[in-house]
């Protein structure tokens, strides 16, 4: 696994260097989005203490979910996907490793974004080291959803629209920018079952110095593991069916 991780880091680093303008553009777009939401909500008086952490959680989460599928789509287009399948590495594990590598690079981008925000927008950041493990547990669960989307990409290839729906759902229905309790009851139920909602809620409580019970953390862990295993199982089923149909490498 370590060698695979090293392989992916090496490749991503070269890719990052080669296509660095894309990453700069992505950083600027995220900055504009963040600044827009922040200024808009501050002026309307609806800005909570944990707004920025919610936004960053969503930013990482929506990309964590789409990373595997974007990567598979790219590999299928480039024609290298079959070569990955021909290597002695479990494809689900490879997807998770790719997602982890992306997370590391994205975290660096997030730090850069925060530095940019700090110097350009009058915002007070609260930070507590305890939110990092909460964030990692949350993102682990979300990578299960990522595997689900990756499986759909293996089968159907063009799944960008699914990713957009899921991303905006996460933005508006997980407490990132809108209070969950003000939503219709159906969305409240769906929203509360997602690891991201729970993760943002716990992180916000930590930042606001409110107590977090061990039950809440256990629930988050169980929820994340549930989504991870669900994603892995669904991936396996769809992947095997697609293999039988001979559509794995279709683009």
């Amino acid at each position: 696994m370590f060698k695979t991780l090293k392989a992916e880091f090496g490749k991503y680093f070269v890719e990052f260097k080669t296509y660095y303008p894309d990453h700069i553009v992505s950083l600027i777009v995220t900055y504009i989005l963040f600044a827009g939401f922040f200024l808009g909500f501050r002026n309307s008086g609806n800005l909570s203490e944990g707004f920025y952490i919610g936004f960053l959680c969503w930013y990482l989460a929506s990309n964590i979910i789409s990373e595997s599928s974007v990567s598979i789509s790219f590999e299928k287009q480039a024609g290298t996907f079959e070569q990955l399948l021909l290597k002695p590495v479990n494809i689900e594990l490879l997807c998770l490793i790719k997602t982890f590598v992306w997370l590391v690079f994205s975290s660096i981008q997030v730090v850069l974004l925060l530095i940019l925000v700090k110097f350009t927008i009058p915002i007070q950041f609260k930070f507590d080291i305890k939110i990092i493990p909460i964030l990692l547990i949350t993102l682990l669960g979300l990578s299960g959803l990522g595997l689900l989307l990756a499986a759909l990409t293996v089968r159907f290839t063009k799944t960008a629209s699914f990713e957009s729906i899921l991303s905006y759902f996460l933005l508006f229905f997980t407490g990132t920018i809108i209070d969950i309790n003000s939503m219709p009851i159906v969305f409240q139920i769906i929203s509360k079952s997602l690891p991201l909602t729970q993760g943002i809620m716990i992180s916000t409580r930590i930042l606001e110095n409110e107590p977090v019970s061990s039950n809440q953390i256990i629930m988050l862990c169980l929820n994340s593991l549930f989504y991870l295993f669900l994603g892995a199982i669904i991936f396996k089923i769809i992947y095997n069916k697609t293999k039988s149909k001979g559509l794995v490498t279709d683009y």
Partner: peptide, 19 residues
Amino acid sequence: RNTYWFLSAMENILYFGRL
């Protein structure tokens, strides 16, 4: 299309060798 075009020959060999 069995290799990555943005990597050099040796980088491709290293990547797949590590896998």
